[in-house]
Computed example of a mutant assay.
Amino acid sequence: MPSPHDIATLALESEVDWPRDLDRAPLPGLTEIEPPPWNEVLGPLFPRGGPNGLVLKDGKTIVEWGDPDRCDLTFSVAKSYLSILAGVAVADGLIASLDDAVNKTLPGPAFDGAHNGAITWRHLLTMTSEWEGELWGKPDLIDRNRQLGPGADNSRKGQHRDLQMPGRFWEYNDVRVNLLSLCLMQLFRRPLPEILRERIMDPIGATGDWTWHGYENSYVDIDGVRMQSVPGGSHWGGGMRISSRDHAKFGQLILDGGVHDGRRLLPEGWTESIRRPTPVNDAYGMLWWLNTGRAEWKTGPEDSFAAIGAGGNIIWIAPRERIVLVARWIDAPAVDPLIEKALAL
């Protein structure tokens, strides 16, 4: 049987092959493979620390490694935070139905026309919107034909692909996720970091150290107030800078069904709906990765799910086992062995 020491040793010895000076280097698999001007960084980047993380079981820390209190960029893990803010919008009645067209609530040029006008909130949340347009100087074309995972062939990334009807095709597209973020801010009429802090992070006892950075050109005026929209990752800089310990508290809230210390923070059933497989991609829910058929993590239970970001950032949750595992800057081949050891504790 593995010991906590075994888990810590594995994680510390399995650092992702990414530079630590992220503020100077092209981002691997992101701006590194994009031609100018598409690769222009629009938000701040920061040097990163080393591998760190922790494992919670039944809400208690059973092992930690590295410096889990260090705040680092977490890349696309931020997308899963957007899914939780969407749940808050549902709770507040700002979204009556996920299957409503977005332009029913937010009319405007972004959703003009028959194609974009058919896009629903569910389409945006499941990466199936097929939205066509440009946001913050980045066209959706940047991420067409994008592939993820080991052996991904991104030789056609950024090339034309005929769009399908919204809901008919799944594609991991950061421009479209950034559009969702802007739409949520327009619903709340306040910057999303304020909503997240007030409604989620402060109530669960997160530190005040985390930040969420936007782009230099992602400001809009809402009710006469200048606000910055934040991205669902750090593809072009910006994004969420947060500690593993705060990630773990967030993950525990999801594991506990959106309830913390007897107080419901998310609509009943929301944490189940975010991990319901998307019809056109059963490995993905609403901005969370799933383990359908145990295809993603062979050592993990099929009902496990995770928030995943580039650079080896992950919040992995096993509901029946009551486990939350947070790892930062870990090499992808080490994730399955790490999960296996965590399950055996």
Rank of each mutant, 00 (worst) to 15 (best):
P2S: 13
P2W: 05
H5E: 15
D6F: 00
A8S: 15
L10Q: 12
E13S: 15
S14K: 03
W18G: 09
P19C: 06
D23N: 14
D23Y: 06
R24F: 04
L30C: 01
E34N: 09
W38F: 15
P47I: 12
P47L: 13
P51M: 04
N52T: 05
L56C: 07
K57H: 13
K57R: 15
D58P: 00
K60V: 14
T61P: 04
T61H: 01
V63E: 09
D67V: 10
P68W: 07
A78V: 14
Y81I: 12
A86Y: 06
G87T: 03
V90Y: 01
L94F: 07
I95L: 10
I95H: 09
A101H: 11
K104H: 08
L106G: 05
H123P: 07
S129K: 06
E130N: 15
W131M: 10
G133P: 02
E134V: 00
G137A: 00
P139V: 00
D140Y: 01
D140L: 03
L141P: 05
D143H: 02
R146Y: 08
L148P: 07
G149W: 12
A152V: 05
A152Y: 05
D153T: 11
D153K: 09
N154Y: 03
R161Y: 11
Q164I: 00
P166S: 04
R168T: 12
F169M: 03
W170H: 14
W170R: 08
Y172G: 05
N173D: 13
D174A: 14
V175C: 05
V175G: 05
V175D: 09
R176W: 01
L179H: 11
L179G: 07
S181Q: 01
L182C: 06
Q186I: 01
Q186S: 12
R189F: 04
L196V: 06
E198V: 10
I200F: 12
I204Y: 03
I204D: 08
G205V: 08
T207K: 08
G208R: 14
W210F: 13
W212I: 10
H213D: 14
Y215R: 00
N217T: 00
Y219D: 14
Y219F: 15
I222M: 06
G224D: 03
M227G: 07
Q228N: 15
V230K: 08
P231I: 01
H235K: 11
H235Q: 14
M240N: 04
M240E: 02
M240D: 03
S243M: 02
R245P: 02
H247K: 04
D256M: 10
R264G: 02
L265G: 11
L266A: 06
S273W: 10
I274G: 02
R276N: 01
N281F: 09
Y284D: 11
T292Q: 08
G293S: 07
G293F: 13
A295N: 07
A295C: 03
W297V: 05
D303K: 11
S304V: 08
F305V: 03
F305E: 03
A306N: 08
G309D: 02
G311S: 06
G312K: 02
I314V: 12
I315Q: 12
W316G: 06
W316Q: 04
A318I: 03
P319H: 07
P319I: 06
R320T: 05
L325V: 15
A327S: 08
R328T: 13
I330H: 02
D331F: 01
A334T: 01
V335I: 13
P337K: 06
P337E: 09
E340P: 00
